[in-house]
Design a protein around this nucleic acid. Structure first.
Lengths: 205, 205
DNA sequence: GTTAGCATGTAAGGAGTTACATGATTTT
DNA sequence: AAAATCATGTAACTCCTTACATGCTAAC
């Protein structure tokens, strides 16, 4: 069955944009390199890769990985399949980066979107950050209202949970404020990261 | 299809343990009263209720809700169905409270478990809190290790994301430490919360 | 007289997981 | 020679969502 959208697809495209990889390596990166990511299973990763190939966003190549070519050329190790982003795939990823999905998507997968901010134009970064902030503030308002209504009949544990939850949200809002301000303070040039050409300069090899 | 386990079932049983309710009310409580809960849809709630009835954990009664009986007895409003926890249901919920599921379950739904701590025996509370803490500490260790390995080749955004993520986790660990200490400080009597009958404090150690 | 809220439900589908199957290769 | 790690894949299942269908009452 075709994995239609989903965060996994997004993350795979984003990681492959940086450099080609085989599935096993990809999964490790999903779990560690991008820290905040959740642990995807092979059972979802490999089928996802297949459908991405079918749609023309990836190509499959047999072969040894880019790094560690000092090892046996491709002797043992059950021949790996290296996946590479196509031009169409790159284009598609740009679209995904730019588009603002439904609130729940944006909210649930904010961490992943943020992880690819390095490849995102400043407009979009601002939109994503501000969107998140406003949703958190809405939520905060709802929590406060609900707490004011029901405070009396809640036990200590529930109260403590709500208190801690609200504090966490408030903390994240402050974090977002800092980020937004720092974006606004204009530094387009954060090293040589050329924001003028979001689809441009791939860091191949 | 039989909703087998799932957090929704747990939450429904827990809420109904406090007092009988009809589905609509239940859903509102899931979304607001217990604040941290996610927004479940009717599409999952009603089927869930049906299967819980089938298993004998709930009974369906037609009728007006316990509060607001000043309104029309049950005149308009499409006759509601009030769900009440049976003895078997109570028993089952106790089991669910006491059992420690797989780590992922415990981790993903910690907030919900915590929300029912008022109905949970102290042993179990300690087990849940300490379990969560140790998993968070493991995760922290993994994050630190991964960060030490890959710091150089991560861009500023990814780095900032990891930094904030780790800070959040550290903060939650401190919170848990406070809670655990406060549990350890022994006060069973936190106001008039009498765990008089919940079959709770059976495991005296 | 139309929107908003109350109230219950079904069918189809999405996005993943677990458990399994397979097999080579390095380490113990 | 046993175990761990590398590597790819499939089938069945889970748990929840969306979109739809229905109909009543209160408020604007």
């Amino acid at each position: 069955m075709g994995r239609r959208s989903g965060i996994l697809e997004f993350a795979v495209l984003g990681l492959l944009r940086e450099s080609p990889m085989h599935g096993y390596e990809l999964r490790k990166r999903l779990n560690t390199s991008l820290g905040v990511f959740r642990a995807f299973s092979y059972g979802s990763l490999y089928p996802c890769l297949k459908t991405l190939v079918q749609r023309g966003w990836l190509t499959e190549e047999p072969g040894d990985p880019p790094e560690d070519s000092s090892a046996a050329p491709l002797a043992g190790r059950r021949a790996r399949i290296v996946y590479r982003l196509t031009a169409a795939g790159k284009e598609h990823f740009e679209e995904l980066l730019a588009q603002t999905g439904p609130d729940t998507w944006e909210d649930e997968h904010f961490g992943v979107r943020f992880a690819f901010f390095g490849q995102t134009s400043r407009d979009v970064r601002m939109r994503v950050l501000e969107g998140r902030r406003s949703r958190l503030e809405e939520r905060l308002a709802r929590m406060r209202a609900s707490l004011a209504r029901t405070r009396e009949r809640l036990d200590d544990y529930t109260l403590e949970l709500q208190r801690h939850g609200m504090e966490s949200v408030e903390r994240e809002v402050r974090w977002l404020n800092e980020l937004i301000e720092s974006e606004r303070a204009g530094r387009d040039q954060r090293r040589g990261e050329a924001p003028s050409d979001p689809s441009g300069e791939d860091t191949a090899s």
